[in-house]
Computed example of a mutant assay.
Amino acid sequence: MTWCSTSSPETPCVASSARRHPPFLSKGCRPSQHAVPIPGGPGQVIIELTETAAMDDPHTGLKGLKELTDIGLKLSIDDFGAGYSSLSYLKKLPASEIKLDRALLQDIETSESARMIVETAIRMGLGYQVVAEGVETEKSARLLESLGAEMLQGYWICSPKPLLELRAWLELERETPGLQGLH
């Protein structure tokens, strides 16, 4: 389990290590078979799935994802823009957010075409909250904010930390709302 960026910084994400074939999308796997009490309810957990994994078996995958969201779990489409997804299929996914792949952001500060692609992806949104992954500079953060990215994730905001350090960082973030350094 990993932590991810959502409206609450303490919302855990479940990111399958089986990126291409997550076990929870296989036939016969039902959420009730693996029931674990979740403090605050299932809406406090986000399942991260790459757009490629979502496309591998569209019929079975969509059915499995619907079952997960039906019990209240949230779904995030990770690495958006890195695969060969169909926008018509993606709009059917019961996701609440898409995470723009860091590859889309690599040269956003210097390339007009990269900036235009990212801006289009943000504006398109498909009704999902848009998270920009791999933000490593203040300049990129400010640019993404100006383009309308709702959430940013990356080393510029917070590097990976042991749990106690993360808690201290979250406390500081609560005391100074907004991204530190941007406001």
Score class of each variant (00 low, 15 high):
T2V: 14
T2P: 05
W3M: 15
C4A: 15
S5G: 12
S7E: 14
S8E: 13
P9W: 10
P9Q: 03
E10M: 12
T11D: 14
T11P: 13
V14E: 00
S16M: 02
S16L: 09
A18E: 10
R20N: 12
C29A: 00
C29P: 00
C29R: 04
I38C: 14
P39L: 03
P39R: 04
G40W: 05
G40D: 02
G41V: 05
Q44N: 14
I47F: 15
I47R: 15
E48K: 12
L49V: 12
L49H: 11
E51S: 10
T52V: 09
T52I: 11
M55G: 12
D56W: 01
D57Y: 00
D57Q: 00
D57H: 00
P58K: 07
H59R: 12
G61D: 06
G61Y: 07
L62Q: 06
L62E: 00
L62S: 06
K66E: 12
E67D: 11
E67I: 07
L68W: 12
T69V: 11
T69Y: 03
D70H: 08
D70S: 06
I71K: 06
G72E: 03
G72M: 02
G72N: 05
K74N: 11
L75R: 09
L75S: 01
S76W: 12
S76Y: 09
S76C: 15
D78S: 07
D79H: 13
F80N: 03
F80Y: 13
Y84A: 02
Y89G: 08
K91Q: 15
L93A: 11
E97V: 04
I98V: 12
K99W: 03
K99R: 05
L100F: 04
R102H: 10
L104A: 01
L105H: 10
L105Q: 04
E109I: 04
E112S: 13
E112Y: 12
S113D: 13
A114D: 14
E119L: 13
A121E: 06
A121M: 15
G125I: 09
Y128C: 13
V131N: 03
V131K: 07
V135C: 07
T137W: 01
E138I: 00
R142G: 03
R142Q: 11
E145D: 09
E145W: 13
M151P: 02
L152V: 09
Q153F: 02
W156L: 00
K161T: 02
L170R: 14
L170P: 08
E171W: 04
L172E: 06
R174V: 07
T176P: 00
T176H: 13
P177I: 01
G178E: 01
G181H: 04
L182H: 08
L182R: 09
